[in-house]
């Protein structure tokens, strides 16, 4: 089985499981205090050196809330001119001076989460009052400082009626693009799934109804744009585990970089190679044509079907009657995270 990409170009660092908010749908199930087991500053800087030495070109940093780590600005400063650096954040720790500092140290793009177009919707999700205002302020400050800035949101029952308003808000405050992300059955979202999950019909209606303002880019991954991005996915979590993609965090562990060089996990783990090969049972032809990949998202395929090569039920052409509002029982059991597979 031949993996499509010989060596990775980009990597995600899910750099902390700590956060200054208490989001209802948190995939990481974050805590206010960072764990002592998280990669240290020195380990992160060594990892960045390793990435540069081994030809990586881009790092995407998310969390938790990355800026909640006391050393985050030092880490960003270290990688800003070595790698194309993207930062995903709740924005609550970004004001004018910080935005200018992010620009100065070379952060290439910032993505700010907004979970609704109304303060009540977003703040209810974030678990703290004032989060919406600070997030919007962060977008405006970043734009003012000259940092390319996007808005991200996770489509769910609590914000589905606000998507168009969110596009218009994002455009007004200067965001270049809005990314509407699907809801994944991970962390806290999994535990409140019946309250927040939409049927596929409801999701498609919401996406099809969108009319982005002129000049605003829209990113979404529903039919016919359901892509299987495993072919290039590389992620290291806060504890140094190589997990391929942040959305696979509860299902896989290809090895820990404290013991195994990252590229050894990339080249040698059989499941990692299998997922990157792109081989699936079947695929939507429209999504394949538009995305150049087959089968759609492996995380949601595995979550709902329990098979790595199953079709993605989030594509209307390969949904096969799966009700996305109902999770399989096995997902709600104690995490069945795959134990570390032996190096081949």
């Amino acid at each position: 089985m031949r993996s499509y990409l010989e060596n990775p170009v980009k990597i995600t660092l899910s750099i902390t499981k700590s956060c200054n908010q208490a989001c209802k749908l948190c995939y990481c199930d974050c805590s206010a205090e960072p764990s002592s087991e998280e990669l240290s500053t020195a380990e992160l800087l060594r990892l960045i050196d390793y990435l540069v030495e081994n030809g990586f070109m881009q790092v995407y940093i998310e969390g938790g809330e990355p800026l909640h780590r006391p050393d985050m600005m030092d880490v960003l400063r270290y990688c800003g001119r070595k790698l194309m650096t993207l930062l995903r954040t709740n924005g609550n720790l970004i004001d004018g001076p910080r935005a200018r500092e992010l620009k100065a140290i070379g952060v290439g793009r910032v993505l700010v989460d907004l979970m609704g177009a109304r303060p009540q919707t977003h703040d209810e999700h974030a678990g703290i009052a004032g989060s919406f205002a600070r997030a919007c302020g962060a977008v405006a400050a970043l734009v003012e400082a000259g940092v390319p800035t996007d808005v991200l949101t996770i489509l769910n029952r609590r914000n589905v009626d606000e998507m168009q308003a969110l596009l218009e808000l994002a455009h007004r405050i200067g965001a270049e693009r809005v990314g509407i992300l699907r809801l994944y059955p991970l962390g806290r979202a999994k535990r409140c799934w019946p309250e927040v999950a939409l049927s596929l019909d409801e999701q498609m209606r919401a996406i099809r109804a969108l009319d982005p303002p002129d000049g605003l880019g829209l990113m979404q991954s529903w039919h016919p744009r359901d892509h299987n991005c495993c072919w290039q996915s590389a992620t290291v979590d806060a504890f140094g585990n190589s997990i391929g993609c942040v959305y696979l965090r509860e299902y896989v562990n290809y090895g820990n970089i404290r013991a195994t060089p990252f590229l050894d996990t990339w080249h040698k783990d059989p499941l990692y190679r299998r997922l990157r090969s792109g081989e699936v049972e079947r695929s939507c032809p429209d999504c394949s044509a538009s995305q150049g990949t087959d089968g759609g998202c492996r995380s949601t395929a595995y979550a709902f079907h329990g098979r790595w090569d199953a079709p993605d039920p989030f594509c209307s052409q390969t949904n096969d009657g799966v009700d996305l509002r109902v999770l399989p029982e096995r997902l709600l059991e104690k995490s069945g995270k795959r134990p570390r597979s032996p190096v081949a």
Binding site: S3, Y4, L5, E6, N7, V9, G55, M57
Partner: peptide, 8 residues
């Protein structure tokens, strides 16, 4: 950098 992409 050049990045090798296997044939499809």
């Amino acid at each position: 950098r050049k990045t090798g992409v296997a044939s499809n």
